[in-house]
Write a protein that binds this DNA or RNA. Sequence first.
DNA 1: ATAATAATTTAGATTAGTCTAAAAATTATT
DNA 2: AATAATTTTTAGACTAATCTAAATTATTAT
Lengths: 219, 219
Amino acid sequence: MHSFTEENYLKAIYKLIEQEGDVVSTNAIAEKMSTKAASVTDMLKKLSDKKLINYQKYQGVTLTPKGEKVALNIIRKHRLWEMFLVEKLDFKWDEVHDVAEQLEHINSDKLIEEIDKFLNYPKVDPHGDPIPDAKGKLNIPKSHLLSKFKKNDVCIMTGVVDHSTAFLQYLDRSGIALGSEIKIKEIIEFDRSLQITINKGASIFISNDVAKNILVIIK
Amino acid sequence: MHSFTEENYLKAIYKLIEQEGDVVSTNAIAEKMSTKAASVTDMLKKLSDKKLINYQKYQGVTLTPKGEKVALNIIRKHRLWEMFLVEKLDFKWDEVHDVAEQLEHINSDKLIEEIDKFLNYPKVDPHGDPIPDAKGKLNIPKSHLLSKFKKNDVCIMTGVVDHSTAFLQYLDRSGIALGSEIKIKEIIEFDRSLQITINKGASIFISNDVAKNILVIIK
DNA sequence: ATAATAATTTAGATTAGTCTAAAAATTATT
DNA sequence: AATAATTTTTAGACTAATCTAAATTATTAT
């Protein structure tokens, strides 16, 4: 099996690839893990030796299929535990994260299958994040950053990167919710801000910073 | 907080004191932890520095009140998780141990309180082992080995040390069950075997080996 | 009471994960 | 294209937990 630390690195790399792009830098990982670049380099060598990542010095990393499977399994466990805490115990959404970070490393196939059954096989968690299945496959189209789309693309809002109350309240006020249809009317060159319509309504402007925190799928 | 390893040592020491006597030897701990005596000595120094155990070179160890509290909290979590796995998920009793060994180290007061509530505040687990409360107190008299009692003592069977099917079946055939009243009629000097009556019935003989695996409370 | 045996501790090494400081490679700037 | 700035890697050290082998202390047997 893999150590807690290895699992956390793989999860961090997976999430960075999901959000930032195809290759992940040492510094990006260091920031996400709240550690130093030198420590990351050490770990990258180790994960590379174990064939969990593709790593060439100075060239950044990607996950191998094996590494991605491990990462998705951790994410599966994390999201199922979060669901369990909220649905079955009296946890609020802002209370679950730290505990789920611990529970995601518990090693027992039977346990996680039983939790899945107990929850009646949920497909997404309440953030709109999909729960990978037991084979480590996402049964829901993978979301991308709204900031990556181009003029006239139409997409559906599926989740957020920044889960802060401030940001969620801003989305609320702007009328952007899970499932909203977002059409990109215009991309302003100089600051990459977007003019969009929500559910075919009046158009509004959002900054590139905001667009980088909204996850969508192509319609 | 304490490391997983420290918690496991404290739990082992607690259980050895419960079963063996008042002071625990380095070798006994090494055996219980499946490690070497030298490693145990290192850890004993560390636990002693942290005031979790009373330790004098070559003299064995006892737990301080602080150490006992930690140990009881781990045991509380272990037993509550076992109950949860059996009662709420579809685990059999022989499947729970390994998973509970992992879950007992999850650090969240709220989580364990909610699990306790979810299970409706059980007092004992199905082995007859008591579940310590949130303050680390046992609300049930602490059990002792039947082998430690003397002639004419009367006690109540509360649990076993050896949980093997073979042993449980032997107890069954002998008519010894949880709650049985056991009276010591005679202790045979040369092999420490006992002549006892069960629920005031006909007397039977049990070996010292058997008596060392039966937990009782004084009536 | 002394020698033999057993238990325990010390000394020194090892591994995983981390760190700081310095070196090397890459990328950006002029 | 050369230099400056940034990123990444290496080198060497540290901590927690472990180990083996040797030394020390305690216990048992004669």
